[in-house]
Write a protein that binds this DNA or RNA. Structure first.
Length: 312
DNA sequence: CCGCGTCAAGTTCAT
DNA sequence: ATGAACTTGACGCGG
């Protein structure tokens, strides 16, 4: 099992991402940010490899306004060398990367323009992974979208619009249950129509349980069946509710007791587990260290010092 | 230079 | 009908 984290690396110099607001998005400024962010991404990848973290979600914010008309930069050509260099590190380091288009990416919208923008957004993410040279086991994770007062119809819209996507995007797309609208049961039904693999998110599942009552283990096994030959290992998302915060918000850190309880119940340990947690790499190290074998002790000690300094 | 309000996009829910 | 939450911390402006 690889355990990974999303988008940002805590406490490591040179890994901070830059951005700007729309009215400052000049070509010069955008280029400055893109270069800085690609170097930051490289630093995050270096860190992950050094610390035996083999699962990582790349932030959507590396290229600012990537699917917005204000950004006309041919970044996939102009920064190709940098992409190739980073991609090589990712492959040699055997890191599995993914991306997760944001909440605005809604391909089942009743508004055609929204769908159009969502497709542009998917194209951006897919291109990013392609330019890095990542194979289709490096996934794009997407929620189903809105309900619009008629879930059955909204699910059909998703299936129809999914079918219209380029094959290269379809080959990467993975769908996930969310905390408000679509339960794991419904996402699995959509998977049946589209063939898209399903990511099981434990907290979303807890907060938004399906009508059909069955154990988490059984849902995990059903999701496992949706992962085909070229899709790589089954992936799941794991997070804990932040105490005292609104329902579905992520905890600051992963507490080992509930994590181990979850881990021990997993029907198949040969899967990849993405943590969604505020302390990012620190929890990834903690969870990797308690489940994995063969992590060098000096790496463990160094990271524990870092962890104590920042979190405890 | 410090601190606090702001930030592309969509949807749902609360008021 | 309008606004906040979702989730997020860096930016950017005003003091």
């Amino acid at each position: 099992m690889s355990i990974g984290y999303a988008c940002l690396t805590i406490g490591v110099p040179g890994t901070n991402l830059s951005r700007c607001i729309l009215r400052n998005a000049t070509e010069i400024n955008l280029r400055k940010i893109i270069t800085a962010n690609l170097l930051a991404l490289e630093a995050m990848i270096d860190y992950n490899i050094e610390n035996h973290i083999r699962l990582f979600r790349i932030s959507s914010d590396i290229i600012p306004f990537a699917s917005h008309p204000v950004n006309n930069i041919l970044w996939w050509e102009d920064y190709k060398d940098l992409f190739l260099r980073i991609g090589k590190k990712i492959r040699n380091g055997r890191v599995r990367v993914s991306m997760h288009p944001g909440q605005y990416t809604v391909i089942n919208s009743s508004d055609e323009k929204v769908v159009c923008n969502a497709i542009r957004e998917l194209e951006y993410h897919n291109r990013f992974l392609e330019v890095l040279g990542m194979d289709p086991s490096c996934k794009l994770i997407l929620h189903i979208g809105g309900v619009y007062g008629n879930k059955q119809k909204a699910m059909e819209t998703f299936v129809n619009n999914y079918a219209k996507l380029d094959k290269s995007i379809r080959d990467r797309l993975v769908i996930e249950n969310d905390d408000k609208n679509y339960t794991i049961e419904e996402v699995l039904a959509i998977s049946k129509e589209t063939g898209a693999p399903v990511v099981f998110d434990n907290l979303h599942h807890e907060v938004n349980p399906p009508e059909k009552i069955q154990t988490e283990t059984m849902w995990l096994q059903e999701c496992a069946k949706t992962w085909g030959e070229g899709d790589g290992k089954q992936k799941i998302h794991y997070s804990l509710q932040k105490e005292g915060a609104s329902v579905g918000s992520h905890s600051n850190t992963i507490y080992l007791s509930p994590f181990l309880k979850f881990y021990n119940k997993l029907p198949n340990k040969n899967i990849d587990l993405m943590l969604e947690v505020k302390d990012k790499n620190l929890s990834a190290l903690k969870c990797n260290n308690i489940t994995a074998k063969g992590v060098p002790i000096e790496s463990l000690n160094r990271e524990w010092d870092r962890y104590k300094l920042l979190v405890l």
